[in-house]
Simulated scan of single mutants.
Amino acid sequence: MGSGTERKNIKIGAAVSIVLKQDQRSGELTEGIVQSILTKSPVHPHGIKVRLDDGQVGRVKVIHSVED
């Protein structure tokens, strides 16, 4: 499990918790599966911006580990 501020830690299909733009003040997290990575830079201090498979866009706060 890596940091949501580094692009290399986020993979398409990964389970993550993101903060949506409208939830930035409250810090409420939304869970989903990464469909695409929108941030081009390798690091972003507020979290890498992603689009979830349901179309929601936000910054990654938590990357969930996958138990096989």
Rank of each mutant, 00 (worst) to 15 (best):
S65F: 13
K11M: 04
Q24M: 13
K8T: 11
T5I: 14
H64D: 05
I48V: 10
S17I: 08
V43R: 15
V16K: 06
V66A: 11
N9P: 01
D53L: 14
L20Q: 00
E6R: 13
I10S: 15
S3M: 11
K21I: 08
P42A: 08
D68Q: 10
G32K: 05
G13Y: 12
T30E: 02
I48W: 08
G47K: 01
K8P: 03
V50Y: 06
L20F: 00
T39I: 11
M1Q: 06
V62A: 03
D68E: 13
R51G: 02
I37V: 12
R51Y: 05
G4E: 04
V62Y: 03
R25Q: 07
I33A: 06
R25G: 03
T30Q: 05
K8D: 08
V60W: 04
R51S: 05
E28L: 15
R25N: 12
Q24L: 10
Q56R: 15
S41M: 01
R59T: 02
V50F: 07
K11P: 03
D23N: 12
S17W: 05
G55F: 05
I48A: 03
L29P: 09
V19H: 03
Q56V: 04
G27Q: 00
E31G: 13
G47S: 04
I63E: 00
T5K: 15
P45L: 11
V19G: 03
G32D: 01
K49T: 04
I33Y: 04
G13H: 09
G32M: 02
E6D: 14
I18G: 07
T39H: 00
A14S: 10
E28D: 14
Q35G: 15
I48S: 11
T39D: 01
K49Y: 03
R25L: 06
I48P: 09
A15V: 10
K49F: 02
I37S: 02
V60R: 04
S36V: 06
V43G: 01
Q22V: 06
K11F: 14
E28Y: 08
S65H: 12
E31H: 10
K61V: 07
K40I: 13
G58C: 13
G27H: 05
V19P: 01
K21N: 14
M1A: 14
I63C: 01
L52M: 03
G55A: 06
S17F: 07
N9Y: 07
G58P: 12
P45E: 08
R7C: 08
K61W: 00
S17R: 15
I33D: 04
V43Y: 07
K11T: 08
N9G: 09
I33K: 08
E67F: 08
G32L: 00
V19K: 03
Q35L: 07
Q22Y: 07
G58S: 06
G2H: 09
S3P: 06
R7G: 02
I18S: 03
Q56T: 09
D68P: 12
E28M: 08
L38V: 10
D54T: 11
S3C: 09
A15S: 12
K21V: 14
I18V: 15
R25T: 12
V43F: 12
I63D: 01
P42F: 13
L52R: 00
E28R: 11
E67K: 05
V57E: 00
E6T: 14
Q22L: 08
Q56I: 06
K61E: 01
A14C: 00
V16P: 01
I10Q: 05
V60Q: 00
S65Q: 15
D53V: 09
H44D: 15
G2N: 15
H46G: 05
S17C: 13
Q24D: 10
V57M: 01
R25Y: 00
P45D: 13
